[in-house]
C-alpha cells in the first residue's frame, strides 16, 4: 500500500530512473499538472491569457475560471467574443471572483477536486510553495490540469510542473493591409519544467493562426520590429492642449 501511495503521477522525486519521452511544445500545458504562466513585464496579462488559451486548447468539459478582484480590475475581464478568436469556445465557462488570494486558491482546489470541470484557470496575485505543492498534488490525484496566470512579480520556488514567462511580440505582417496589425505573436520562455528539465530556458517564438486557431513557431521576430508611425516630432502630447478643430 505504501508504494502505491508514493506512486502518484506528476510528483517529482529524486532518483527517478524511468525516463519519459520528451513531450513536445506546449509540454502538456492544460493537459496535466500545474503550469504557471507569468508576465514578463507589467501589461502582458492579455498576451498570457491568449497564449494560455491557444496553447492549452480547452479540453472537453467546462472551464472553471477563478479571478482575483484586483487583477481583473487592472487588466480587464475575459471577453467571450475575444476568447473565440484564440481558441475553440469550451463547453461551458464558470467564473468566480474573489478578493482574497486564499479564497481564490481554495476555489481552485475545490474545482480540481470536484471532477466536474475539464480545466481550471486561476488568475491570482501570488502563492507560496506550500500552496503550489498542494495544488500540484490535487491536480495529479484528480487528473484535472490547472493553469495559473500570475503577475510579473512571481518569482521564487514552486512545486508547479512548469513555469512559463510570456510577453507579446510585434504581430506578423498583415497580408491585406501593411499598416494594420496581423496575426498575434508571443514569446514564451520555459523557465523551469519538471517534465523536461533539459528544456529549461528554451525560448519559443510563436504565432497564432487566427483562421485555424493553431500555433506555429516562427523565427527572426526581432529583426522585423516595425518602426513607429511618423508623428510630428515637435509635439509632445503630454502637455499638448486639447485638440482644436482646424476647419
Amino acid at each position: 500500500m505504501e508504494s502505491a501511495a508514493l506512486d502518484i503521477p506528476g510528483v517529482f522525486r529524486l532518483g527517478e530512473t524511468r525516463r519519459k519521452p520528451d513531450p513536445g511544445f506546449p509540454l502538456n500545458l492544460g493537459r496535466e499538472g500545474v503550469h504557471e504562466i507569468c508576465e514578463a513585464s507589467h501589461g502582458d496579462m492579455a498576451a498570457m491569457t491568449g497564449f494560455a488559451l491557444a496553447a492549452a486548447r480547452p479540453p472537453a468539459g467546462a472551464v472553471f475560471w477563478v479571478r482575483q478582484f484586483g487583477l481583473s480590475r487592472e487588466h480587464g475581464q475575459l471577453l467571450h467574443a475575444g476568447l473565440e478568436t484564440v481558441a475553440r469556445p469550451p463547453a461551458g465557462l464558470l467564473s468566480v471572483e474573489t478578493r482574497k488570494t486564499s479564497d481564490a486558491l481554495w476555489a481552485s482546489e475545490e474545482a480540481i477536486c470536484s471532477g466536474a470541470v475539464g480545466l481550471v484557470i486561476a488568475e491570482i496575485e501570488g502563492l507560496d510553495f506550500t500552496a503550489s505543492r498542494r495544488l500540484t498534488l490535487a491536480a495529479s490525484r484528480h487528473g484535472i490540469p490547472l493553469i495559473l496566470l500570475l503577475p510579473w512579480r512571481r518569482d521564487g520556488s514552486s512545486a508547479a510542473t512548469a513555469r512559463w514567462r510570456v510577453t507579446s511580440r510585434p504581430s506578423a505582417p498583415n497580408a491585406f493591409d501593411a499598416r494594420a496589425p496581423g496575426a498575434s505573436r508571443w514569446q514564451a520562455v520555459l523557465e523551469k519544467s519538471r517534465q523536461a528539465p533539459q528544456m529549461a530556458g528554451h525560448v519559443f517564438n510563436i504565432e497564432l493562426d487566427h483562421e485555424t486557431l493553431s500555433l506555429r513557431v516562427v523565427s527572426g521576430l526581432a529583426a522585423h520590429a516595425p518602426s513607429p508611425r511618423a508623428a510630428p516630432a515637435d509635439i509632445d502630447i503630454r502637455d499638448a492642449p486639447p485638440r482644436q478643430q482646424t476647419g
Partner: peptide
Amino acid sequence: DTDPVLLSALADRITAKLGEGAVRIT
C-alpha cells in the same frame, strides 16, 4: 462532457463559502 450534477455540487460548495451569486456564467 460536463456532468450538470457534479458542476452544480461544485457551485453549491463555492456559493456556501463565498456567498450567493459567487459562481457566474456569461
